[in-house]
Amino acid sequence: MSNISQNFVSKTLLPPQPAPAGEKGPAHWIRKNLLATPKDVVLTILAIALLAWAIPHIVNWLFTQAAWTGTDRSFCATTVQGGTQPDGWSGACWAFVRSKFLIFMFGLYPPDERWRPVLVAILTIIAFVPLMMPSLPRKGLNAILAFFVLPIVSFFLLYGGFGLEVVETERWGGLLVTLVIAFVAIAVSFPFGIVLALGRRSKMPVVRMLCVVFIEIIRGVPLITVLFMASYMLPLFMPQGWTVDKLLRAIVGISIFTSAYMAEVIRGGLQAVPKGQFEGADSLGLGYWQKMRLIVLPQAIKLVIPGIVNTYIGMFKDTSLVAIIGMFDLLGIVRQNFADATWASPVTPITGLVFAGLVFWLFCFGMSRYSGFMERHLDTGHKR
């Protein structure tokens, strides 16, 4: 029997063979994802027909017939409307965006001082790009520079002091305000949300009750309500004669609101960590904070990266609500400039809104792509 097996069983492994030609490449992907069943074929044909109809119209409005240059509304209006464009013309008024671009970016920040927010943007890129690249070393020092040194330097650059002209926050606006509020809210809400999540799972009844009450109250009211409270009620708790900067009020309100949602996201991650991880940390004699910092939280945060980024994307878009308390972020200042009689035309509002939407989309899409990268990088337990 052994002689027969030696004659028919190979003693060497065959080298791996390439996949059949029909099982790889674009043709296979199309057949598998778009034409797998009759229903997929019908949906694919309908989708292609819809795109074939919509894309030429969109491209025509955005680019082909768009007005790219001009000094006033006449370049974005038809002759019937008192402009220079032919009757029946329909296209985006990018000349309006070009004319107001610096205002959309900086608001009423003094033109001679706009180098300061530009410098802050450059410093932010220098500080955060190495922090976001896992392969680079010295993450601790990098984090200190990004979250402690950079905010202090940015404050004195943007607001003034040490020989620089003071620029009150009432003159800030546009994308500058959006990014300042979003950055501070992210930096504050993440650690505060972790503390609230741990407090809600605490075995101390008083701590647990306080965290539950805070989270449920904040999550139970709209962000507009929180902003109104931060804007109009916060000064009532200040000593007589003290005032609170309007931008600071907005930052406090949005940070508190985001922290409540972040706490629930982190709590979901804590509940997803296997009980054995807690018991293993206890068996090693680790204290509570050592156990959380070294064992539990790294696993919990990795599990809820999509939820964290989703919360921040929602918060980034919700910064536009600061317009209700008299601040003008990117969307607010774009809408404010619709009232400029110099550029009043039927296509001006939609062009400004498309521009604002594109800017918001770029930042949100960037956060989404980076979160996907971090998920793949940290997914060491399972192979895709």
Rank of each mutant, 00 (worst) to 15 (best):
V9Y: 14
V265Q: 09
V252E: 00
N7C: 09
L123Y: 04
F8L: 15
L35F: 12
R116E: 09
Y261F: 15
P349L: 09
E264L: 11
L321T: 12
I58A: 11
G83F: 07
G174I: 04
I215V: 13
A54D: 11
I48H: 03
I251H: 04
I266R: 09
I350F: 04
V149H: 01
A281V: 05
V41E: 05
P20Q: 05
E279H: 07
K383S: 13
I186D: 02
F156E: 03
R171Q: 09
V184T: 14
S202G: 07
F162E: 01
P18C: 01
L145W: 11
L321M: 14
G174L: 06
R249S: 15
V334N: 06
R114V: 01
L176F: 09
I256K: 06
M367G: 05
I254S: 10
C93W: 11
R31F: 04
A323R: 13
S283D: 08
V359K: 00
W68A: 08
T380N: 08
L145T: 10
W172E: 01
A260D: 07
V195L: 14
V177C: 11
F192K: 10
R138F: 14
I194K: 02
E170P: 08
G107H: 07
G163W: 00
N310K: 00
A19F: 00
D318C: 05
V244K: 03
V80H: 01
T69A: 07
Q81V: 01
A19I: 09
L13R: 10
L270C: 13
L176S: 04
A300W: 08
F328L: 14
M204T: 15
G88L: 05
F363N: 06
G140H: 13
L303H: 08
P38I: 03
F147I: 04
F316V: 00
I325N: 07
R208L: 14
V206A: 11
L270A: 11
F104W: 10
I325Y: 12
G276T: 05
T44E: 12
Y370H: 15
G366I: 09
I144L: 15
G268W: 06
A66V: 06
S74W: 01
G253T: 08
A21N: 03
I266G: 11
I295T: 12
V354Q: 02
